[in-house]
Amino acid sequence: MGRVLPRARADTQTRTAPRFSYKTTAYLFVLPYLIFFLAFRLGPALVGLGMAFTNWRIVGQPDWVGFSNFEAMTRDTRFLDALRNTAVFTVLTVPLLIIVGLALAIFMNQPRRGRTIGRVAVFIPYVLMSTVVGVLWTWMLERDFGLVNSYLKYLGIAPVPWLLNENVALYGIILTTIWWTVGYSMVLFLAGLQDIPEELYEAARIDGASPWALFRFVTIPLLSPTIFLVALLSIINSFQVFDQAYVMTSGGPGTSTLTLVQYVYTAAFQFSRMGYGAAIAVVLFVILIAIALIQARSYRRGLTGTMQ
């Protein structure tokens, strides 16, 4: 039953007993990937971790500075802004992706002609590259002539200064992100829905369950692994949001759309403060790992809860 996260799959672990005992063969299978992984991912990441404790400016020799980069962060209003923006972005984007994605999936799961067109239309934005999405939505959200405001005007709503106002710019980017990626969560939910045996619904219907009861007591519990998966993937992606914000606003107006990853980029590259940028990335890593662990834990607890 469990999906994806290793911890959540304790049951399958026992089922797949190891098939090969010749260890050299196993290493030969793993080795090619491992070389790439060590050289291009783990190695650089460890160097990056080391940099977080230095004042390295990319050029010249790094000096060890202990935890002073991390101390500096607590006094850095830019960093705190970036942390807050990223948190707000995640807190709003993740539930929206789950709710809208699930609603779309349930809708598109109905056995009616035309649903394929619907699925394709919802998924299409996901295949676009981030810079195209950024350029396109900068134009969509243009205050005076953008399509969104033009239609709001028809509806008698005053134009929203989307990317020009620090109180709404982040929402503009959230809107863009939902449009861009909701197709992905819809497809994951569709796959999850198709795994729920129809008999369960029929049995419940015979017992006189209302559609809401079906949704609440059959769909949701059986879909919880998928919800968990979508939540985890969107949290990881949301916390690392960069491209669209960089293209659309570069963090402005003011600091209203500055995100953690953009600040990593800004500190490390634009300001040549590699050590400080690396330290911010380390903080981001710790936050993400903590969220993943808490989530995995509550998920397992929830899972055992429904099983019993």
């Binding site: 830019r78 802004d81 200064p161 020009l164 106002n165 620090e166 570069s250 963090g251 402005g252 107006p253 003011g254 600091t255 500055l258 800004t266 634009q270 300001f271």
Partner: peptide
């Protein structure tokens, strides 16, 4: 980048 001068300019001219 959200530099002090950029933030100041947008605060005054946009907000």
């Amino acid at each position: 980048a959200p530099t002090p001068m950029m933030v100041l300019a947008q605060d005054i001219m946009l907000n």
